[in-house]
Amino acid sequence: MVRARNLSKRFDTRRIFDKVDIDLDVGGFLLVTGPNGSGKTTLLRVLAGLAAPTGGELELPVRGEIGYLGHEPLVYKQLTPHENLTLFARLYRVPDREQRIRSLLERFALWDVRDKEVATFSRGMQQRLGLGRVLLHEPKLLILDEPFNALDTAGAALLDEELATRSARAVVVATHDPERVEGLATERLGFA
């Protein structure tokens, strides 16, 4: 599903990474680790098709089959969770929209606050909504940048569960807490 050969990325003349090879198929789990500023986010953005690699070849699923969660939850703060998910469900052409949104909001314990503005949410609640947004269209390639950020025990457990079910998708996760997902990883990429 993801095939990268000799992938490299530079900002101006500064090399962030070089000669990265990735092979990831359905059921695969790529764990990306490294200290702050080592290039994890940069790699994930390239894999999501948001940033262009400087060199190398990259084969990705088509747009719309990718789910990307960055450092920010990528939702409109002035809208409610329900409005946010409705917008993205429309753009992603999610079938049975209402039902899907409801099941996700219930799952992430946001159903009761579905009509409150996201701006009033705590960081952890926003992260849950962000997870709901990336899972909404059942992406074939799920790319999560430090997804455990700000999640409480229950939220983290939900995410663990989600990461374990990979029958129909490949997952890429960058995290500072590799122990948490160690058992799941099929591939590893460590940045220095």
């Binding site: 948001l50 089959e65 990307y68 920010e72 990528l74 939702v75 409109y76 703060k77 002035q78």
Partner: peptide, 17 residues
């Protein structure tokens, strides 16, 4: 401004539209 503040352009351009 709403898109910029949250980096939302990323989410929008990934949609299949």
């Amino acid at each position: 401004v709403p898109e910029r503040e949250q980096g939302l352009m990323d989410a929008l351009v990934l949609a299949p539209c």
